[in-house]
Simulated scan of single mutants.
Amino acid sequence: MLVSFVKFRTIPRFLNINKIIVRKYNVPRRALMYVPGDDPKKISKSLTLDVDCIALDCEDGVAVNKKREARETIRSFLDKGKPSKDRDYDFGVRINAFDTEYWQEDLESCLTAINLPDTILIPKVETADTIKQFSEEVKQRIKSDKKINVIIYIESARAFLNIVDICKTAEGLSKTSNIQPVSLVFGSDDFCANIGATRTESSIEILYARQKLVLVAKAFNLQAIDMVYIKYKDLEGLKKQCEEGMKMGYTGKQVIHPGQVPIVQEAFLPSASQIEWASGLLQSFEKHQKDGKGAFTYKGSMIDMPTMRQAENVIKLANLKKT
């Protein structure tokens, strides 16, 4: 029997076990859907969809002469507030890369809105200095302890050489600043262009990079979001690539068309064995809490709070599977 996720929402938001702090549950991001920030109709449409993560785009999805319009349109939607749905979802903004002239205006616009976005997505991160600079910019604009989720894009050879340092820096800053890293994204097309690779249907040319991103993401308890499937009308091909990515350990996929959302979100639901593991873990946690015990073992492993969050994630997805 599935354990109700609602039952475990009663766990205190900040519960100190072995000096590990439980943070607010991170929403699943099976489908991360880009919506051009300069198109209010498409943004309004996206808010009616059952999608885990909406990324209002200031970057690749917006022409250079439309950057300002996108910024202003996104700001107007943020001012109105995040529309409520039957379940939680991520409402974020993808800013322009730090090697452009646009990113500071993007940040200024969305971080001074009446309502902050849940998440900022930072493309083309190549060194830890970008994360440090981003953290300082956020600190200057948010005069509270409010946390902003951060999704980091790895899209070049240099980025992959520095990926561990990037994640270490983001993890460290999460303890002292307003940023909370939640996901790594594999930007496959920019990566291929950067290294001069020729794209193939099998994607063998990017296999190493694709697997490395998952490895590092999991080492830092981050979600791993897979590459875009550009043939948006080929749903069979999309499903196949989703299943391939999930077997590698990816937890979600970038989406460029609403028609891709159902396929992607179904593909990244947990298996029966994952549900059984998570259910048992959370039941064991509840028992140990009632007995006044902190740290505990489950099936031979010492359980910490990142593992607890993973179990909660599985159960929340399992409950979505039932609906």
Rank of each mutant, 00 (worst) to 15 (best):
Y153W: 14
I154D: 00
K231L: 12
P28D: 10
F160A: 01
L32N: 02
I120F: 08
A295H: 02
V214F: 10
R23E: 13
K146Q: 07
I315H: 02
I204Q: 14
I152P: 02
R29S: 15
I17T: 09
L317V: 04
G292E: 06
K231Q: 15
I154F: 11
E276G: 07
F268R: 07
S174C: 04
C110V: 15
G172I: 02
S279K: 07
M227R: 07
V138R: 04
I166A: 01
F77E: 09
Y34A: 00
V35G: 13
E171N: 09
T10Q: 12
R210D: 00
G37M: 12
I131P: 01
A31D: 10
F98I: 08
V182L: 07
N115L: 06
G187S: 09
L78K: 06
V51L: 10
K124I: 05
R141M: 08
V150D: 13
D291K: 11
G249A: 08
K231H: 15
R75C: 13
A159T: 02
V150S: 08
A170I: 07
K321N: 13
K293W: 09
I303F: 01
L184Y: 01
Y232N: 07
V228A: 05
V35C: 07
T10F: 12
K218L: 03
V62D: 02
K146W: 02
P306M: 09
N313V: 00
R199Q: 15
I315K: 06
Q289S: 04
S174W: 03
P117E: 10
L56Y: 04
V62N: 03
S279D: 11
T73F: 11
I17F: 10
S177Y: 04
I21H: 13
L161F: 14
K146R: 05
G259A: 06
M33R: 00
K143M: 01
T200I: 06
D304Y: 04
D52V: 03
Y208F: 15
V164C: 06
Y298K: 08
P262I: 13
G196Y: 12
K233V: 10
I151L: 04
Q265C: 04
T130D: 14
M248Q: 08
K322A: 12
E108F: 09
I166N: 00
L238S: 06
I148H: 02
E244C: 10
I152Y: 03
S273M: 06
S44Q: 15
K293F: 15
Q133M: 15
V138P: 03
M305V: 06
S4H: 13
I54R: 01
K42Y: 00
S109C: 04
P117G: 08
V182C: 10
T169E: 11
K139M: 11
G245W: 09
E244P: 10
S177A: 00
Y34W: 14
I20N: 13
A70M: 04
